[in-house]
Design a binder for these strands. Structure first.
Lengths: 367, 367
DNA sequence: TTGTAGGCGTTATCAA
DNA sequence: TTGATAACGCCTACAA
């Protein structure tokens, strides 16, 4: 048996490690037991109205707030969700994930790996903090994914290639979207393609370009020029220069793994190389960042439903936290083609028709 | 007295709330006491080499990781740093803060208020999690700031107007930078200014525009046109239209509280209103976002040393955590003028000189 | 509905 | 250097 507090409370000023306000203090002031206080802070617990009021008043008076660490120790719930996100994954996803996690009464504990090899260090911290689950928008090795299973920590992969059907994942069908993009560009008459690769550790960009290459091959188009990139603005500019050097001519269409690179490519092509876009060359991105819609870019790109995906990830994780034995699932979303002004996407025929309609609208032509 | 574990370990499979691996399990396997295990995980504790090895081997064997919640309970250190950041503050700041916090052996617990009134809710959660300190890139009321002092939780304001000298803050001298911008624009001959305001809850944007207005007044220039904005792309476009309607003419120079709005203004002016920039009108932003440097914008703007500021914030907070009674300090940084291509910043004289030099360089003129 | 008592997993203290 | 023991602050049967 142990005495709740050695010093009842008032004469506790001499202690060095400055005492915090605890539920015992509140109980003392309210004239109830400590467990009564505890129950008052648990939604749906059985407490009389009178007790509840007295306790809450005392709590307010003392600025009492329950200690999450102590609670998590006994309940085995930290209400913490680890979010592992490499900076390349885009700020919109992070903001949206944070919001969704908060809505479900949990908090995002942020892990931002800068290099691949940091991931093991990060994981060991993840375990320490006893997170209830993890949403990972970073590339985990199979060994790392296996650790989650062994420790029984629910994991949801976000927008990353899932390692087999045993892993929970929310993904956008990048390959399908890229295939669609190639098909549309090909229909419109583009034949010589070029690809500016995204960063190696960005699985979604890799998926997109893989899909594009396959579709190009299927359609029997010329072998595309491919250059590496890091997904940043400079990569786009350097990329288009390298492509032209490689092909010995300007390609018909350039597809970039990342929008920012696509904008870099677009700007360099227009302002430094003097290439008419979309007249002479088409440029397309793949992830519809905010800037892609700006008037000076109007980039043709692929929009992923990030909000819905974040919501799905949070839902999926919540479910797993409440029922760790739920069957793993993959939720697949489709990207949507954003028809900007950097690529001709219409077939020659439909373009004629559109032109005629436009002229007709201005009264210049009668159909 | 209490027995470490009711069930020694092997036959513990029947328990429902599935036991975790604890330091007791490691101790049992290594044949030492539990406190010996604890000491092995504390850097600089006095343990014999032999014991250390045995314990570590057992720990690896059992996948043991210390429980941060239990540790934080007794040490009163959670190693958690609350980061309160409104989405408007920019992703670069968040990434940099996260990195700096990690480098100091702590973790960022993310709080992203979407509306002002959410802040009180957020703070009550901050207290629950027993964070060691908070970096706030959001506007806190004086009452809210006072709560930090009362609870003795170190607080560092990041890029937000400090509430008096008693608050720790890392700020960039926005007003001074804006004054410089106005001065340079005025020297170059711009007289009629217009301002597109940032969001109300974005104190740095407010500071910048305040500085600009004061300098405009000091120089005896015409009263500037001022329109409200939210700091987003659309605000820039709407803003410039409203300004022209208000003035009845195109202003000489537009200064925007946020770069993204400035780009919106620039694009709309160029592509929709057909205004020659910088010939007919100057456009300037204030926070040097990544896109401002792109070739299609080349925005004249003000660069804040975000990396240094994040480092300073993390340093300051670390110091406060180790010594809560340290005197509060403000660390002030200066913004740097980025001379883009959206504003003439040279005086008429120097422009002539520059022109002559340029022509001379091409052999078209001899000085 | 309320109080008692034990335990969550760790670190800190102190004697051996 | 090591081990026993007492916190840390809370939740939760169980009994009243």
């Amino acid at each position: 048996m142990r005495k709740p507090r050695p010093t009842p409370a008032p004469p506790a000023a001499a202690k060095r490690p400055e005492r915090r306000v605890t539920s015992y203090d509140v109980a003392l002031l309210a004239g109830v037991s400590q467990s009564a206080v505890s129950r008052c802070f648990k939604p749906g617990a059985s407490v009389s109205k009178a007790t509840h009021e007295r306790v809450m008043k005392a709590a307010r008076c003392l600025d009492y707030i329950p200690n999450a660490a102590a609670r998590s120790l006994i309940t085995r719930r930290s209400n913490l969700v680890g979010v592992i996100i490499s900076s390349l994954a885009g700020p919109e996803a992070l903001a949206e994930l944070s919001r969704q996690i908060t809505q479900r009464g949990k908090r995002a504990l942020l892990f931002t790996p800068t290099r691949e090899n940091e991931l093991d260090t990060i994981l060991s911290e993840v375990w320490q903090y006893q997170v209830d689950g993890v949403i990972a928008a970073a590339s985990l090795s199979e060994r790392q994914v296996a650790q989650f299973a062994r420790r029984r920590v629910p994991l949801v992969m976000f927008n990353r290639g899932a390692h087999g059907p045993a892993v929970n994942a929310v993904v956008c069908d990048q390959a399908a979207a890229a295939r669609l993009l190639v098909s549309r560009l090909a229909e419109a008459g583009h034949r010589q393609f070029a690809l500016i690769d995204g960063p190696q550790d960005c699985a979604d960009a890799q998926q997109r370009l893989l899909g594009a290459r396959m579709r190009i091959a299927e359609l029997g188009l010329p072998v595309p020029a491919v250059v590496d990139g890091h997904g940043d603005y400079a990569s786009g500019g350097n990329g288009i220069r390298a492509i032209i050097a490689q092909l010995g001519r300007v390609p018909d269409a350039v597809i970039c793994g990342k929008d920012v690179a696509a904008i870099g490519c677009l700007d360099t092509a227009r302002h430094e190389l003097g290439i008419n876009i979309p007249g002479k060359m088409a440029v397309a991105g793949c992830d519809a960042v905010e800037a892609s819609a700006w008037l000076s870019h109007k980039l043709t790109t692929l929009r992923q439903p990030i909000q819905k995906m974040a919501q799905a990830a949070a839902d999926l994780l919540s479910g797993l936290i409440d029922n760790r034995d739920a069957a793993p699932q993959q939720r697949l979303f489709n990207a949507q083609l954003v028809e900007g002004a950097t690529a001709r996407l219409d077939t020659p025929d439909s373009r004629d028709l559109a032109l005629r309609l436009a002229l007709n609208k201005h009264g210049l032509l009668t159909i």
